[in-house]
Amino acid sequence: MIEVQKLNKIYGSVHAIRDVSFEVGKGEILGFLGPNGAGKTTTMRILTGYFPATSGSAKVAGFDVFNQLDEVRRRIGYLPEQVPLYLDMNVEAYIDLVAQIKGLGGRDRKKAVEKVISDVGLTSMKRRLIKKLSKGYRQRVGLAQALVNNPEVLILDEPTVGLDPKQIIEIRSLVKHLAGERTVILSTHILPEVSMTCDRVTIIHQGRIVASDTIANLTQQNAKTVEIALTFRGARDRVEQSLRGLHGVVSVREAQERERPRITVGNDGASTLLVAIPSDSDLRGKVAKAVTDSGVELIDLRPREVTLEEVFIRAVSAEDRHEDSDATASTLSASEPSQSTSGHKEENR
C-alpha cells in the first residue's frame, strides 16, 4: 500500500533523511519510531506531498507521490504533528469545509460529516468553536478531518504528543478502532504506543532506518532460544561454571545494567547472569538446582523479555557506533534501565 524507496531529503545543509526505504502492506498499522529530529515528520511530509523528496521514490495506494500527487491526496488522511486547525470555526463547520475541499458533495457529505464526528466522539461538541476545545478534543477534530473522506491510507504524526495519560489511552484506542481496513502509518517516540497500537515497527534514527520488523520478531518472541535471568548473592564464577556444565545450556553471560530484572527490594550485592536455553525445552528446574547447588542464595529467576526499548537502544547505538559518534552510544548504554526512551531523546538533542 505504501512503498518507499531510498528517499533522501536535504534542507539546505541538513541531510534530514538518508536512503529511507520501507513498505507497509494493506491494512497494516506501522509504527514509525524515532527520537526527536530523526526524520519522522520529514518522511511523512514527503508521503503526503507537502514537499518533494530530494531523491528517491515513494508510492502511496499505488500512485507515485511525485507524478500522481492528486490521486495520492484523494486517498490519504493526514494529521500533522502540530494539529493545525482553523480555530475560529466550529467543529461541524470545519469538518464540513474539509469534506467539501476533499470533494464530497450533497447528501454524502452531510452523512460523512455526521458519521466522522460521532466516530471520534465529538457529537456533543460539534457546535463548539475549535479554539475553545482542549488539546485532546482538538486531536479528535484533527483525526476527523483526516478521516472524513474515508481514506485508504492514514498518516498520523505523533497523534498522542502533549496529551494527558487518559487522553493518550483514548486517542490510541480510537486510532486502533478507526484504523479498520485502512493502512496506517503512525509516528511516535513513545515505545509502549507502538506495542499497543501497531503490527509492525520501523525504527528511524538520525535520518536512517535502523530496524524494521514485526514487534514479535524484534522482541524475539519467536526466537529459537530464550534467556533466563538469574539473580543471586554469592560467588559468581562458581555458578557460571556449573551452569556451563549443564546439558542444553546454549550460553551464559553477565547481564548488563539495563538487562537486569527490575527487583525493587534486596538487590544489594546481587549479580545477574543470563542463561540462554532452547525455547522448546524446559530447563528452568535444572538451572535453579545448579545455582543452589553451587552454594549461593538464589533470589530471582525469570525469563527475560526483550523490550522494545532494548531493541530500540540496541538498534540506535549500533548505528551510532557505525557512524562514529561514540559519545552518543556510551550515554545510551550507560543510561538507567527504567528510563523511558523520551529521556534518551533529551540527551540526544
Binding site: 503526503t48 507537502y50 491526496r73 500533522p80 493545525p84 482553523y86 480555530l87 474539509v98 475541499i101 470533494g103
Partner: peptide, 12 residues
C-alpha cells in the same frame, strides 16, 4: 498557525 500544511495536502 501551520494550517497551510493541511491545505497543501488536500486535493487543491
Amino acid at each position: 498557525q501551520g494550517t497551510i500544511e493541511l491545505l497543501y495536502t488536500y486535493p487543491l
